[in-house]
Amino acid sequence: MEEVRKVGRYLIENAEKIIRDITKKALVNVDIPVTEEMLEHSIQQNVEFLMLIANSFEETEEAAEAELIKWSKQVGEQQAALFSQFSTILKPFAKNRLMYLECITQISIDHGLSVENVVKINNRINYLMDVSLMETISAYEVYRDSLMEERQKEINELSAPIVPIQAGIAVLPLIGMIDSYRFQYVINHLVPLIPSRSIDHLIIDFSGILTIDSEVAEQIFILHSVLQLLGIHVLFSGIRPNLSMEVVRAGIDFSSFHTFGSVKQAIDSLK
């Protein structure tokens, strides 16, 4: 065990030189442009990683894993944010792992380690690299889901803006594919803004909607009821025949609603 610790101490003392040598060889496996700042950042992260591996030689596998997971969670999201596709991170992983193993195996042999201890070190490296990769994948998924949620929020804001027309009158044009999620956004985020904008009449225009399902058709009724409770006079415009069919299939009675063929007709009715 002492000879394994000796290799660990050597790796810690020479971590930066070892990583710079490995990085120089690894750059040939990278397909994307790498700036000096990105390169230096990657080197420092790998130095930390190598030192974690070296320190783990004196720990149990469970303790080593716990330390590496803690570290990986800190750096995983940073790595994920640098790349738009996970394949960019994953593609060179196998070759880089091999270079790590070849380098540390040679160091182990130079320190006179037995075959058994060389295998023990390599097994530990392989295991911790797999743990690190899984944490990176997890961080990337969290980052990607967060990014998609933000983009969906932006799409919702752009596809359902409240447009003032004149004093007391505004139009809410619904654009694109309106599903239950996006209609909930309208109810939960846009409706609370309406009273503060001194709107007495709101024209909800459906002419920009591609399609609509029965669940959303039911939510139209809910939206109408909510706005009425707020004292807003609601008018609907642009409900084309295919949208009307969905409303009928949903069993919703629109006969009591004020509906118009266009926004202009709705505005003229208010005059």
Rank of each mutant, 00 (worst) to 15 (best):
M1S: 15
E2S: 14
V7Q: 05
R9D: 12
L11Q: 04
L11K: 07
E13M: 03
E16N: 02
I18R: 10
I22V: 14
K24F: 15
K25Y: 13
N29M: 11
D31C: 01
D31R: 05
D31G: 02
V34Y: 08
E40S: 14
N46A: 02
V47S: 07
F49W: 14
N55F: 04
N55T: 04
E58K: 10
E61W: 13
A63M: 08
A64F: 04
A66S: 09
E67R: 12
E67S: 10
L68P: 03
W71D: 08
S72F: 03
K73I: 00
G76V: 01
E77K: 13
Q79H: 14
A80Y: 10
A81Q: 12
L82I: 13
S84E: 11
S84Y: 01
S87D: 08
S87M: 01
K91Q: 15
P92G: 13
P92I: 05
Y100G: 03
I104K: 09
T105W: 14
Q106C: 08
S108W: 07
S108H: 07
D110I: 06
G112V: 11
S114P: 06
S114G: 07
N117Q: 12
V118Y: 10
V118N: 07
V119H: 11
K120P: 01
I125P: 14
N126Y: 10
N126E: 04
L128W: 12
M129D: 08
D130R: 12
M134L: 09
A139Q: 11
Y140K: 02
Y143S: 06
R144A: 12
D145F: 07
S146P: 10
E149C: 05
K153N: 15
L158R: 00
S159C: 10
P161S: 02
V163Y: 05
G168N: 04
G168M: 00
A170S: 15
L172T: 09
L174A: 06
G176P: 00
G176N: 04
G176E: 00
M177N: 09
M177L: 04
M177D: 11
M177C: 00
I178H: 01
D179L: 11
Y181H: 12
Q184G: 15
Q184A: 06
V191T: 14
V191M: 07
P192D: 11
P192E: 11
I194F: 08
P195S: 09
R197F: 02
S198W: 04
H201M: 01
L202M: 09
I203Y: 07
D205S: 08
D205N: 11
F206M: 13
G208A: 06
I209A: 08
T211P: 00
T211C: 02
S214A: 09
S214V: 12
E215V: 13
V216G: 14
E218R: 02
I220R: 01
F221V: 08
F221D: 10
F221H: 05
L223F: 01
H224E: 07
H224F: 07
S225L: 11
S225D: 15
L230V: 10
G231N: 05
V234E: 01
V234Q: 03
L235D: 11
L235E: 13
S237N: 04
I239T: 07
L243P: 07
S244I: 00
S244G: 15
E246S: 13
E246A: 13
E246Y: 00
V247D: 00
V247E: 00
R249K: 14
G251V: 05
I252R: 00
D253L: 02
D253W: 01
F254W: 06
F254S: 15
S255K: 14
S255M: 04
F257N: 10
S262D: 03
V263S: 06
S269L: 01
S269R: 03
